[in-house]
Design a protein around this nucleic acid. Structure first.
Length: 274
DNA sequence: AGCGGAACCTGTCGGC
DNA sequence: TGCCGACAGGTTCCGC
């Protein structure tokens, strides 16, 4: 569900609620939600721990504890956090429930594509080791894109979604970035030149900045903490707009499938050649 | 190594 | 109204 701007929004909201607070209880109803960790092990590891920081890396949320160690949370497609009073019954798709005293924090995930895991050392967490460049870091620049896309015949849309290259982009923003950069989603990675790489970098940062400023995109079921919605869906130019006019030239927006995912684009504005 | 496709899940929406 | 297929902000695994 959520991409970088949505996760960033959730982290900022969650931070103000739980940093400096202590986890008093932990219930995990669905064992399969943990990556190879036992429910009891996880619960024992986090119970009694005080949250010192909450950070984002790509689409992951990283909890850090005063006592050392931490928790990695990925929301998959449908994960969301909701604060409830301790008396309220858990919603249907609750995958974790953490008691903080005055409120309980519920993690819901209908499709259960998300994951939760406790770690002693962050450096040993595999998904984080393989993570690509953060879009707002200096490491993410034109030269980096050129290096990463070199000899890659794969469609640029698929390369943008590769988390080992760029951390945090998902299906909505990949289409929006390519539209702004005037690049066809099926353009082969190795054909991207230096100025196109620079365009990709600047438009990636710009789209993500704008989306964060609008608290992310709510299309079907992405919700911020406590069921609040984002507003960036009002500024999307191509995503999910098949058949609607291109905001630049008026041509009809097309949908194609690449890498098993929908890509939306304008045939006239986004060129595969050159 | 890199690529395409399937698998993991549940919910929703549109067509017949 | 009901059934059925297509599709959904993601990741990972498997075979070629």
């Amino acid at each position: 569900m959520p991409e970088l701007p949505e996760v960033e929004t959730i982290v900022r909201e969650l931070r103000s609620e739980i940093v400096e607070k202590t986890i008093l209880s932990c219930q995990i109803p669905k064992e399969s939600y943990l990556r190879g960790q036992e429910v009891d092990t996880f619960a024992a590891a986090v119970t009694g721990k005080t949250v010192t920081a909450l950070d984002r890396r790509g689409k992951y949320i990283i909890w850090r504890f005063a006592e050392g160690g931490g928790t990695l949370s990925h929301l998959g497609m449908t994960g969301k956090y909701v604060k409830l009073s301790p008396e309220t019954e858990s919603p249907k798709h609750t995958v974790a429930r953490l008691g903080f005293g005055e409120f309980d924090l519920i993690l819901e995930d209908a499709r259960r594509f998300g994951r939760l895991l406790y770690f002693d050392r962050e450096s040993e967490v595999l998904p984080l080791q393989k993570m690509g460049a953060e879009p707002f870091s200096p490491e993410f620049n034109g030269a980096y894109i050129l290096e990463q896309f070199k000899n890659r015949k794969r469609a640029v849309k698929e390369l943008l979604l590769d988390q080992t290259i760029i951390a945090g982009l998902g299906n909505i923003y990949a289409s929006e970035i390519l539209f702004r950069a005037k690049l066809h989603p099926l353009k082969s990675g190795e054909t991207i030149d230096a100025s196109q790489a620079e365009e990709l970098v600047s438009h990636t940062r710009k789209v993500l900045e704008e989306a964060i400023a609008h608290n992310g995109t709510t299309i079907s079921d992405y919700k911020r903490v406590d069921e609040k919605s984002g507003e960036f869906q009002n500024f999307l130019q191509v995503y999910d707009k098949e058949g609607q006019p291109c905001p630049i030239c008026g041509d009809s927006i097309k949908r194609i499938v690449t890498g098993g995912r929908s890509a939306y684009y304008c045939e006239r504005c986004q060129k595969k050649q050159q």
